[in-house]
């Protein structure tokens, strides 16, 4: 067992996959010589060389599309989009090309392609460097979407993504890059599509991811002092979604709060609620609540951003409200 930061875990996953297969290549803006703007990728260029770890021109549409071309030939490219906010720059390639390639070639072409990107707020990067991207991508069949919430998952799920014969978008949370956690020394690639119960409880279930999962853990600890037992599920992958873990949790607790670092409309929290309503309605003892960003955007100014992202206080208030009904 080694304690690593989330950042180091991502780097190790990239290094281990580059080491294990010469068909794995990695490119993106500033990822090679500079080691990435978040210092996630230092040393990869030195170890694997400029052929395999490559700096690109500022041309997201081109290098994401080129990665598709390279994947079709049998290479296993990993591309980094520096900020998840830049995903829309390459959206045609991701939605119209990469996601659909297998389907619209009648299964002739497989796309073993991984897109990594840093998403999420809480670090004062403003409106266009903080967004979360899973909701844009979940609406696109053909993609898998991974949202690691701790160092072990950042390592194992990224390796699992690179081994996939499907296009996978791995959305790292840049507010978690400094997070430390234990990573088992023998941890290999993790399968996608499994949620994790990160805290067991009996009174209420919180479903969350990444930064707001950490906020939820804080709330659960505080409420434990009052004798309230909160169970927390970290979804880990948005596509495929692990409905089994969710349903067995609400069967136990009977109450549900969904916490999203994302706007409300068409947000993934709606999918969780719809799943609970469709397959778990008789487990529920109270109405469900979603805690999210409403219609508000990320802001640079600290108090504005804090107001937008579900805070421990807002999560706690929602938990109390659901427990009171």
């Amino acid at each position: 067992m080694t304690v690593l930061t989330y950042r180091e875990a991502v780097r190790n996953a990239l290094a281990d996959e580059l080491r294990s297969d010469p068909k794995v290549i990695f490119f993106g803006e500033d990822v090679a010589v500079a080691g990435g703007v978040f210092k996630v990728t230092p040393g990869l260029y030195e170890e694997f060389g400029g052929e395999r770890v490559r700096d690109t021109p500022i041309s997201e549409e081109a290098f994401v599309g080129m990665a598709l071309g390279a994947a079709i030939t049998g290479l296993r490219p990993i591309v980094e989009l520096m900020f998840a906010d830049f995903i829309p720059v390459a959206m045609d390639q991701i939605v119209n090309q990469i996601a659909k390639y297998r389907y619209m070639s009648g299964g002739q072409f497989v796309v073993p392609l991984t897109i990594r990107s840093a998403q999420g707020g809480g670090v004062g990067f403003g409106t266009q460097h903080s967004q979360t991207a899973e909701n844009w991508l979940m609406n696109t069949p053909g993609l898998k979407v991974v949202v690691p919430g701790n160092p072990a998952d950042a390592y194992g799920l990224l390796r699992g993504a690179i081994r996939e014969n499907n296009p996978v978008v791995v959305l790292e949370h840049k507010g978690l890059y400094n997070m430390k956690g234990e990573v088992p020394d023998d941890l290999g690639p993790l399968p996608l599509g499994k949620a994790r119960v990160v805290r067991e409880g009996s009174d209420l279930t919180i479903v969350a991811t990444q930064l707001v999962c950490q906020h939820s853990l804080k709330v659960a600890e505080e409420l434990a002092a009052e004798g309230i037992s909160v169970e927390i599920i970290d979804l880990r992958t948005m596509v495929p979604l692990d409905s089994e873990t969710l349903l067995s949790s609400i069967a136990k607790t009977g109450r549900l709060v969904v916490v999203e670092e994302a706007p409300h409309a068409s947000g993934w929290g709606g999918d969780i609620v719809s799943l609970a309503a469709d397959q778990g309605i008789f487990y529920l003892d109270a109405p469900v609540k979603r805690v999210n960003m409403g219609n508000v955007m990320f802001a640079y100014s600290e108090p504005l951003e804090k107001l937008a992202i579900p805070s421990p206080e807002r999560i706690k208030a929602a938990v109390r409200e659901v427990l009171a009904t």
């Binding site: 290549i25 549409e61 990665a67 090309q97 072409f109």
Partner: peptide, 27 residues
């Protein structure tokens, strides 16, 4: 390799394939 309806998208795919060829030869 499959043709795309949004025009010019295939040019980057082709560049990616050419890139992969060069990569394979060099490595």
């Amino acid at each position: 390799v499959s043709t795309s309806a949004p025009v010019a998208t295939q040019v980057v795919h082709a560049a990616g394939m050419a890139f992969a060829i060069k990569y394979r030869i060099q490595n």
